[in-house]
Design a protein around this nucleic acid. Sequence first.
DNA 1: CAGAATCCCTACGGATACTG
DNA 2: CAGTATCCGTAGGGATTCTG
Lengths: 117, 117
Amino acid sequence: MNPERCKVDEALGILVGKWKPIILLHLFNEGTQRFSELKRLMPDITQKMLTKQLRELEEEDIIDRVIYPQIPPKVEYSISEYGKSLQPVLDIMHEWGTAHTNHMQKKRNSQNASNAL
Amino acid sequence: MNPERCKVDEALGILVGKWKPIILLHLFNEGTQRFSELKRLMPDITQKMLTKQLRELEEEDIIDRVIYPQIPPKVEYSISEYGKSLQPVLDIMHEWGTAHTNHMQKKRNSQNASNAL
DNA sequence: CAGAATCCCTACGGATACTG
DNA sequence: CAGTATCCGTAGGGATTCTG
């Protein structure tokens, strides 16, 4: 694989954004969710950011957005068929991330131990 | 998996940074490299950025940094034993990224086709 | 050679207020 | 309910200069 053809950045581009992984996690776990339900699942996100990140994921075909023309409005979000192809990517990243957390924890512990001498 | 335990962000944190994936790619492909060799492989990166990203990767134990105390200085970088565990993560991200590039390309093509009607 | 230091600019993200 | 619109602070990244 030569540098020009490295597509890691493409995958990275989809996932970066402070809230995207957690949004995807909720949609994968909980299935279809309304805007307000997602907001309730993530109390710390602002409406602006939730909207923006959802739009970006939609733009990349990862999620579907269904608008029910009614009052009050109702909009449902879900992982698209295509978006499901992200599952293994997220899985392996989560797996490695978990291991890495442990690795760095041990590192700090051993550093503290030697500092304590 | 509950949101509190989602560690995708941990993995993401290692890889984000405009140059990290490409730096890792070179170290995985070319093996041990000096600072100046990496700079030559990535003409567009500034010394400041190269230094910074290498330091961050070192901080996370992903790469080893070996200093040869001589004049002129010589510093070699390489993927650490632990860092090799990132390989499958990068592989699957590259694979998905490649597929995604094709997916979006086709999407744009079909959009252009319908616009041309 | 391998950096450190400085300055600068933009994009990301947060807070708040408004609307069909 | 599901968004816009606006303002604003910070961090990431780039250009340039200096140094052991």
